[in-house]
Amino acid sequence: MLYALGLLLVPAAAVLLRAFRTDTGSFTLQNVRDMGAHQYVVAFRTSITLSILSAVVGVVFGGFLAYSVLSLQRPKWLRGALITFSGLGAQFGGVPLAFIFISTLGVTGVVTKFLNSAGLHLYPGFKIYSFTGLVIVYAYFQVPLMVIVITPAIEGLRVQWREAAANLGAADWQFWRYVGLPVLAPSILGAFVLLFANAFSAYATATALTSGQVNLVPVKVGSFLRGNVAADNAQLGQALATGMLVVVVVAMALYLWLQKRAARWAK
């Protein structure tokens, strides 16, 4: 554990310290100030927006999907198939995922061509390597991740609560309004933060898909690492990485705080 902690925290600390140093090693806030430059502010804004959007898509779509499958008892294999596939789908990513969507919704993608032949022209209004495209592609791992994370919580909803609510006079929506959703809230919240962090830290997929056309923080950090940007300011890359850490930490803290409020009734 100590080893893990070391391997994790030492680099993180290194990032943090370097972010406030000049090339020669003296303390400076210049890098942080540089981060305020327009393109980096935009990068953070785009990254955060993308992460929130794709997390919302994942939570909503994945939530309803998981709920629908879990509550239908008829084809028994459906449940197992969804869980297994989600376990696999949640780990999709990188260049292969980008290819798969280019093959599907790219300019010459199968679906694009099919829609063209039906008289529906996706391009040039839509581009798979755009912001919207990223939301769709990210959904491909966000939805399964949501399914995995939320399944235990949905299974934890007891039939008795439903029946007790109905017995006391609650209509369906009243059950959800007063019991179902409040009970699920902490889990949904947790899932949202997880999905947010998941999208926020995604690097390979974004790079492969957009080749830098969408201005995202991880992509920027990556280009610093690869030395694509003027090398005289490697510390700016460190500062950006620090910024990412800060965003993730803030998200986690927010999550813990909200969790405490949403679950004050739990053990």
Partner: peptide, 10 residues
């Protein structure tokens, strides 16, 4: 939770 890219930078 920590983005892999930050780990790489460090």
């Amino acid at each position: 939770v920590i983005p892999p890219i930050v780990l790489v930078v460090g």
